[in-house]
């Protein structure tokens, strides 16, 4: 990772007003076993999970980038973990889709990241936020005919 491409970044989890109650049970408890020992020169154990709850409270979702600082216009990977808020098991058919959007610009990323499930962790590769500014990073959990989103604000500065 080129140091020059690393920028300060700020994040704020966003949860719906009706779903805050579920937040006390962490999805990802440290230390977390990760599928990758080192990614982009970073030990994943050093990176904090960002935790949130999906919009209707069905899912507790956590993610973390596998870089220390989110880069502008450099691809990076992330890991996602899920748990049902009611404690029921997460079935095998669940799909995860990570995306990022700049709503004030009316566009998102130019690429679709690759998501592969590795046990309890979904590895998301090829996230590319190509402009500085405010991005809304979303993780959609697709459960058959229902899709539910959790969302974070990511501010990429130049």
């Amino acid at each position: 990772m080129k140091q020059s491409a690393c920028v300060p970044w700020l994040m704020a989890g966003w949860v719906g007003s009706s779903v805050l109650l579920g937040c006390d049970r962490p999805v990802a408890e440290a230390p977390v076993e990760t599928s990758e020992a080192m990614v982009d020169g970073v030990a994943p154990g050093d990176i904090e999970w960002q935790e949130g709850v999906s919009g209707d409270g069905t899912w507790m979702v956590a993610w973390r980038p596998l870089v220390l600082n989110l880069p502008v216009s450099e691809p990076f990977s992330a890991e996602v973990r899920l748990a049902r808020a009611d404690g029921s098991p997460t079935d095998a058919g669940i799909k995860v889709f990570l995306d990022a959007e700049m709503p004030h610009h009316g566009h998102g990323m130019n690429v679709v990241p690759r998501v592969t499930r590795r046990g309890d962790v979904w590895l998301v590769e090829g996230i590319l936020m190509h402009m500085p500014g405010r991005w809304e990073l979303s993780i959609d959990v697709i459960d058959g005919d229902e899709t539910e989103r959790s969302q974070w604000t990511v501010q990429l500065e130049r």
Binding site: W14, G16, S54, G55, D56, P103, H104, R134, E136, S138, G144, D145, E146, T147, E148, R149, Q151, T153
Partner: peptide, 25 residues
């Protein structure tokens, strides 16, 4: 996502997709 007590202003970040259900469901 908005503060209903705050002064009104155009905010492109206000709308948050929450969930969808297929017609077949």
């Amino acid at each position: 996502a908005r503060d209903r007590e705050a002064a009104l202003k155009m905010d492109p970040f206000m709308g948050r997709f929450i969930r969808s259900w297929s017609e077949s469901l």
